[in-house]
Nucleic acid binder design. Sequence first.
DNA 1: TCGCGTTCTCGCCTCACGATCGATAACGTC
DNA 2: GACGTTATCGATCGTGAGGCGAGAACGCGA
Lengths: 232, 232
Amino acid sequence: MVDDSQARASAHAVLAAVLQIRQGRLQALLWQRAREPFAARWALPGGALAADETLEESMRRHLAEKVDVREVAHLEQLETRSDPRRNPSRRELATAFLGLVPSGVDPGVPADTRWHPLDDLPELAYDHGEILLGARERLRGKLSYTNLGFALAPPSFTLAELRDVYSAALGHPVGATNLQRVLLRRRLLEATGERRHYGSGGGRPATMYRFRRTRLEITDQFAVLRPPTMTS
Amino acid sequence: MVDDSQARASAHAVLAAVLQIRQGRLQALLWQRAREPFAARWALPGGALAADETLEESMRRHLAEKVDVREVAHLEQLETRSDPRRNPSRRELATAFLGLVPSGVDPGVPADTRWHPLDDLPELAYDHGEILLGARERLRGKLSYTNLGFALAPPSFTLAELRDVYSAALGHPVGATNLQRVLLRRRLLEATGERRHYGSGGGRPATMYRFRRTRLEITDQFAVLRPPTMTS
DNA sequence: TCGCGTTCTCGCCTCACGATCGATAACGTC
DNA sequence: GACGTTATCGATCGTGAGGCGAGAACGCGA
C-alpha cells in the first residue's frame, strides 16, 4: 500500500469514455457516485494511477471493475486534464481515454453502472461532461479517415447494419451505397460468404461482411497537399 | 517549496516539441544536458509541474527559460507518456506539447540550446525522440485539414514562400498553384495589398498574403460520410 | 528604349472521389 | 406464380485537387 501522503501527492487518475452503439444510439458507460463530492452524480469509470503501471495498464485495471475488458475493442489516450480546481477536494490530474465496445454484446455491469445516450446526458461529476463530448469528437473524426469502425461494429454485419452504426456514431444519416464503395475501395471490408436478413419481413438476403483488420490504421491520407501522385 | 517526498511522488513533467522552419528545413529546439542521467545528450525543453498550475501554464513557464514565449504562435497538448521505466532515476509522467514558431523570427536562446533539423537528429535523452516524431506527425496531419499554417508562416508572405514552408513541414514537394487555390477556397488567406520579390533577380513581384485568422480552426470536414449536402 | 530572362498568376484540362438515382437481383409470402 | 420487400450494382453528376502552359509584371543590360 502507498501511504496517504504519497497517494495525495501523486494524485493522477485515469478516466474512460466507454462508448457503444445500443438501440441505435451512441451511449456511454457511467456509474452513479455514492459519496461526496458529487454524490448521486453520474461519472466516468476510472481510478487512481498506481506506482508501477502505465496509464493504459491502469485504465484497463480500473475498467475491469465495471465491464469485461475483453469486450473493449479499442482503447486510446485522449487529453490530460490539469485544472487545479477540477477536483474541489484535492489537486488531481486525470488522463482521459476513449474506449469502444462493439455493437451487439451486452457486458454485465455492476448495480451502480448504466449506459446513457450521449444526446441525452444527465449532469456529470467533475469535468466528465466535457471529456465525454471531446471523446465523441475524436471518435467522429477517426471514423472518417481510419478503420476505427471495426471497434463499433459487431464481428460480422450486413451493410444496412453497418450503416446504422456509422449513422448513430456520426449523428447524421449515411448512405449505404456510398459507405460500401468507400470501405471496399479502401479494402477495409471483406465478405464472410454468409448471408442474412436484416428486418423481419422478406427481401433479398444481405451479404455479410467483416473488417479485415481489427487494429487501428490510417486509411485516408489527407486530401490537401498530397505528395505528387506516383502512379505505379 | 515542496518537500522531497512530495516532489518525488508528484513527479509530473511537461515537455515541448518546439518546431520552426529554419533555412528551409523543419527544426526543433533542443538543449544539451549537463548532468546525469543522459549527460551530454540533447533533450526537449520542459520541467516539473508545480502544484497550482495547469499543464499548459507550466509548459509556458518552462519554455520561457529557453525562448521568448511570445514567439510561440501555437501550443497544443500531445500524448502523456507514462512508462515506469522511461526515466531511469525515478518514476515520472510527462505530458508532451507541440509548439510552433513562425518562420523568419530568430528568438535568442541560451548557450546550451540549439536548433536541430528533424531529418538529422542526434540521439536524444529519455523518450524524447519518439515524442518529437509524434509531434511531427500531428503537425503534418493538422496542416492538411486546419489553418495551422499560420503558426509556421511569417506574418505576411508570398505564395512561393508559403509553398516552401509547407513543403519543408510536410517533407514533400507542394505545388504553389494548388496551394493557392486550396487555401483561398477555404478562405484562409487574404491579400495584404503589398507586393514583394522573392529571389534576388528580377521577375514579376508576388502579391503578399496573410492568414485571416491566427487561432486554430478546422477547415476541412472529413470527406467520407459527410452529412447530406444542404445546399442553401 | 527595347529586348530578354525571371518569376508569378491565372485559366483550362484531367482525374479521383463522394453523392444520388434508378434498374435489377434475390429473397419471403400469399 | 405474382407481388412486396430488401439488397446490390451500374450510370451519372458535381466537386475539388493536381498538372500544365500561356500570359502578366517586373529587373536588367545592351
